[in-house]
Amino acid sequence: MRRNTRKIFASKIARALVTVVLMVTSVFVLMRCAGDPVTVLLGPDATADMRAAYSGELGLDRPILAQYLAYLHNIVRGSLGVSYVYRQDALGVVLSHLPLTLTLTCSALTLAALAGVAAGIAAAVFPSSFIGRACTVGTVVGLCVPSFFLAIVLMLVFSIQLNWLPTGGAESWRSLVLPAVTMAAASSAVLARYTRVAVRESLDSRYVLAAFARGIPFWRILIHHVLPNAAVPILTILGLLIGGAVTGSTVVETVFSWPGIGNLFVTSVGNRDIPVVQAIVLLAGTAMIMTNLAVDLGYTWLDPRSKSSET
């Protein structure tokens, strides 16, 4: 039993590592397909001499397999090239923006998780009460309103009309509030919807009926029977949201000029700063695979059935 669990964990980790390698490879292929890097870098007007010099410097005149191996080797060493704009190690540039993005996404996700799960439970447990209806309506609104629109509305109200919070930047915690709320809105709505469905399904199940018939109090049933069952789908959605937050932060960071990775990504694409773009894509891809792995392991741990049904 326990050995079985360990084996399942090992196989899931191995699978994640294979996915990372595939992701890294597809980034290489995509970068080559995106067009001749020399043209991209120098523009169509460059002279043949300049092109040849650049090709040699970047190793683009070597066979594709050699280029691929050199690329892998560099990734393993942690060297992803030098940013054309910052004239620094690309990975270093990206990592220097990481703390701000982590601050934003972590606050947004914590907010989304708390609000979304609470609203979902309330909507499932009290479907016809005011709070239940409010949660249902809030969920629909949260799902329908695009985040750039919400960002502008929040900015108009809280920054421009009321002048409570700054419109952008990352000077103090006050700058964090609007971008975090904007980012959390859609995620919490998604989470609330799935939580409501999962909790409702569990509440309607026969094991809950039997627990009621045994005289177990409602709140005990909710905490010890319903939530552990609902946790499995909730965790899955949360994992998807965490994965999505890496890219989802781009819009919000841009609108609120939050100097994080999303903002850097948009600027770097504009500047054709390929090493930085590549570093961000690799980092975001790895982060997504790792959150999926974490969800998968958490799922195995939460649901005893998955341990024996896996081969």
Partner: peptide
């Protein structure tokens, strides 16, 4: 088995 909670022992 339907009347026993699947995720609690």
């Amino acid at each position: 088995s339907l009347y026993l909670n699947p995720v609690r022992n």
